[in-house]
Each structure stands twice: as structure tokens, then as C-alpha cells.
Write a protein that binds this DNA or RNA. Structure first.
Length: 296
DNA sequence: CACCATGTTCCTTG
DNA sequence: CCAAGGAACATGGT
């Protein structure tokens, strides 16, 4: 589930549910998601602490807590990896098979589950310091974006996944933003023209903003659809509603006609990740400075 | 069995 | 410092 929009929707959903709640106990079932924090350390820090805030940075969830009897806030950092979920359930509800960490909140429990255990729930907040600008904030200017891009000869698609360049863009929205900006994914980052940089900045924001708006209309409570929390399903996932895939114009559409020109969409592999694009609409040709970019 | 998967990090080699 | 490739993490879906 995790790219910036999914995390944003989750944060908005979770914030009012956790704020004000006090942690009575901590159960760690998979220590690796805490590292380098130890289970013992997490338990000592969180027991008795009260949630005072929840925000997002890139794809990270940032929980703020007030430890018992203290004034200095405590930061708990979460990440969903590829398959993580975080939600509240009644105390007596059965735990999912891959529950990694469970926080006892009294009547309810906060569950972080993750079948692949790629995600995190830790006191180690160093990852936040390495983040680039928030794409939806004022900090994300095309001047700064363009200047940063000139330092790399790597393909633009690969650089879009670099969280130090811009925070929160993942594999799906990288392809989507490039398609809308009509930029070939193979184009070296430093080769983007000014117009292309501006277009890409705009389509990144567009794609993320639309996804957030769209996601916010999705039922956020578990129990409704299937497999727990009905937040964002993707593609062929169980119970996947195509409301998600309908939003995607190129991702996972290999061989299907481009929505602009009918040319079959291609799939290539870059840095060991799938990239989808239209070979006609997204040209790597000369004159990148002249490239016009409009959304389809 | 094979291949694929929304992510990040670390490692090697150049 | 950068590039490119790979592997690792671990599980599930098709």
C-alpha cells in the first residue's frame, strides 16, 4: 500500500483515532521491524506514553508521544514497506498472522501487521533526516528540483525513486508522473530541459494530489471488504476494486493501448524495478527543452 | 515450478 | 562523488 498518497490517507484516518490514547502495553512479535531499537527498549519507552500527534514525511508515519511524567516528546517512526498495514481493532479481535507489533490501548489495540516485514516501527528516526523535499509543499520548487537533477546521469525514472531527491514518490507514481509529463523514463536526469522539469514537478504533484483525494473516498474501516482494513487495494490483490487501477494510466498496462495514442504500453526494467511507458508519447528525442507537457 | 510484487539498504565493481 | 548491478529482507498471488 505504500506510496505517499496511501500513507497520507492512512495518517489522516489514524490521527484522530490514536491521539489522546495511552499505550498500556507493547507486544513485539517480529523484532526486525524495530531495529536498531530493541524490543525491551520499545516497551520501556512506550508503556504509559500518550499519542499527541501523527504526521507524515515522505512514506513515513511520524507518531509523537508524551511519555509518562515527561515533557519531552517521543518520536515513533513507522513505514509500511510493501505490504504493511496499521489499524485499530477491538482488544478481543484475533491477531493477524503477520502481526509484527501490537500496542495495547485498553479497549482497543493498535496493530502493525506486515506479511513481508519490510516495514518499520521504531524509535530510530534517522531516516527522516535523509528525506528530500515534500512534493506537495512549497519547498518543492522546479528551480531546486531542476538543480538537483543536473547532478545525475542516471535515468529520470530511477531518480524519482530516490527519496533524497523528492520524498514519497514510489514505483507506481513515478511511471504515472512521467507519462503525464510525456517524458521518457530512460532519459538521463541531467538531460531534462527546463520545461520538462517544470512539467514533471507539476505532474508529480498532480498525480499524488489526485490519489490522495481519491483515496480519501475509500472506506477506511476494517471489516467491510475483506482482509482486514479496506484501505487501498492494488491491482490483482484480493478483493481489489478496480477503482484503484482505473486511476492509473500506464502502470501495469503493458500491451494495452495508450490512452492518448493507442500505441501498446511497454514494460521495461530499470534498477530492478518495472517501468511502464508509452514509446510514442514519451519520446527521448532531441529538443527536450521544447517538449510540451500536458496531462492526457 | 516460475515469475511477479506499492520499498529500502547494503554491497561490489567500475 | 556517481553509476549500475545485484542481493538481501520474507511472503503471497497468479
Amino acid at each position: 500500500m505504500p506510496e505517499l498518497p496511501e500513507v497520507e490517507v492512512l495518517v489522516r484516518h489514524l490521527r484522530p483515532l490514536v491521539c489522546g490514547r495511552t499505550i498500556r502495553g507493547v507486544t513485539v512479535r517480529r523484532a526486525r521491524v524495530l531495529a536498531p531499537t530493541s524490543p525491551d527498549q520499545l516497551q520501556r519507552s512506550l508503556r504509559g506514553a500518550t499519542f499527541t500527534g501523527l504526521s507524515r514525511r515522505g512514506k513515513y508515519l511520524v507518531f509523537e508521544l508524551r511519555p509518562p511524567g515527561k515533557r519531552v516528546p517521543l518520536i515513533l517512526v513507522g513505514h509500511l514497506g510493501m505490504t504493511g498495514r496499521m489499524y485499530l481493532t477491538p482488544r478481543n479481535a484475533p491477531l493477524p498472522k503477520h502481526a509484527a507489533v501490537v500496542l495495547n490501548l485498553g479497549r482497543e489495540r493498535f496493530v502493525y501487521e506486515d506479511p513481508r516485514y519490510f516495514g518499520r516501527l521504531t524509535l530510530d528516526s534517522r531516516a527522516l533526516a535523509r528525506m528530500g523535499p515534500e512534493p506537495l509543499s512549497e519547498d518543492f520548487t522546479s528551480a531546486a528540483f531542476g538543480a538537483a537533477l543536473t547532478r545525475f546521469r542516471q535515468a529520470i525514472k530511477v531518480k524519482l525513486l530516490d527519496q533524497a531527491l523528492v520524498a514519497g514518490v514510489g514505483n507506481i507514481y513515478a511511471s504515472e508522473a512521467l507519462f503525464r509529463a510525456r517524458i521518457a523514463p530512460q532519459l538521463a536526469a541531467r538531460k531534462l530541459g527546463r520545461t520538462q522539469v517544470q512539467a514533471l514537478r507539476r505532474t508529480i504533484r498532480e498525480v499524488l494530489t489526485e490519489a490522495i483525494r481519491f483515496g480519501s473516498t475509500i472506506p477506511l474501516h476494517h471489516g467491510e471488504k475483506r482482509s482486514g482494513d479496506g484501505l487501498f487495494y492494488f491491482g490483482r490483490a484480493a478483493g481489489a476494486a478496480d477503482y484503484y487501477t482505473e486511476r492509473l494510466r500506464v502502470y501495469d498496462r503493458k500491451g494495452l493501448p495508450c490512452l492518448r495514442c493507442q500505441t501498446p504500453i511497454r514494460r521495461i526494467v530499470q534498477a530492478a524495478r518495472s517501468t511502464f511507458y508509452c514509446p510514442v508519447c514519451q519520446k527521448r528525442g532531441a529538443n527536450p527543452n521544447q517538449t510540451q507537457a500536458k496531462s492526457v
